[in-house]
Design a protein around this nucleic acid. Sequence first.
DNA 1: TAGATTTCTTACCATAGGGTAATTTCTACT
DNA 2: AGTAGAAATTACCCTATGGTAAGAAATCTA
Lengths: 191, 191
Amino acid sequence: MEELINKIKSRLALSSEAEEFLYSISKVKTLPKGEVLIRQGQVVKRTFFVTSGCLRSYCIDKNGREHTLLFAIKNWWISDYIAIHTDELATLTVECLTESNIIEFNAKELDGIHARFPEFESYQRHNLERHVVSLHKRILNQLQLSAPERYDLFLKQYPDIEQYTRNYHIASYLGITQQSLSRIRVEKVKK
Amino acid sequence: MEELINKIKSRLALSSEAEEFLYSISKVKTLPKGEVLIRQGQVVKRTFFVTSGCLRSYCIDKNGREHTLLFAIKNWWISDYIAIHTDELATLTVECLTESNIIEFNAKELDGIHARFPEFESYQRHNLERHVVSLHKRILNQLQLSAPERYDLFLKQYPDIEQYTRNYHIASYLGITQQSLSRIRVEKVKK
DNA sequence: TAGATTTCTTACCATAGGGTAATTTCTACT
DNA sequence: AGTAGAAATTACCCTATGGTAAGAAATCTA
């Protein structure tokens, strides 16, 4: 929990009341590899802050193929924000790729922090702005880069993530098959 | 300008001071088709609210190909938010696809509205949350749908936009070439 | 540590979509 | 309305990536 508090304090003068509130609605948990926190089709109420390990969110399409939206490691948040903000059932599944330590919140309760402690509004707005920027960049990269270029960029942007993931997780993030990624990796070594 | 004020009022009790502030920093303009408001590589200071017509933002890759990030019609905002929020030069170009009426703001000045009128924080946070959801959905659709499926979805989601755009604009939004889109359209008619 | 399971690699062929270029159609301007 | 330019279509072949399947390697589990 200190990780989250410190992260917030680095950007915000966190009052002791607000800190107390955060503690009161949080649950610190250690989760085994393979644990599923949110399952596609079910109701989503929770959001998670990762303090160690690695999780991913993905959807399964009508042909049974997986498509990864996000990997989350230390100091990242993960949930199904499509479901949370549209009040629909989960389109995503969130699972632990390794044993992980997380802090769990009820998303509605956590959202209440903005009404109680308005200084969080600005903090959260900045977080969302940065997230929007990263999503814009990802869309543009997906449109303009080849699969090998996307893989290179992925390794540069997320050098820590490969240790936690299977190749098919990365392939499903890049929008290619595991076999294609395997070929790309071979070509990279040749050079 | 009334369009923007009304849009805000539908979600927020807009004080007359805040309304006055918005007027004081806005410039209402009519722009001809083809006008470029932001050019890739230049400094970005402005953001635009569309009241009529259609604009798009796109980047040009190292091979000279265009990739459309966004179409904006009535009641949408458009700018290069990557540049604005990272203080970098524009990665995007923003142009008018038709003669358009827009309201122009200096992005920094507009951002100042949050400090002066904190009630905008929550409003803007909700806007950003909804934008994040739509970007998540777009990424997932790009990963899991075929080109014809993406085109069908585009027509469903943005039925009004096709009247303003050239086919190659849409193709560059979907991540395919104009020729492929042409083939897809032929196949659709056959069915 | 052996066996079971999962993942990765490789090879084969299949296919969606790309590149170029010629032709037709549309659009904008005078 | 006529013309020039832009956009769309079509056809050709090409390439990147997909699908299936088999074997190899890695990982998990008892």
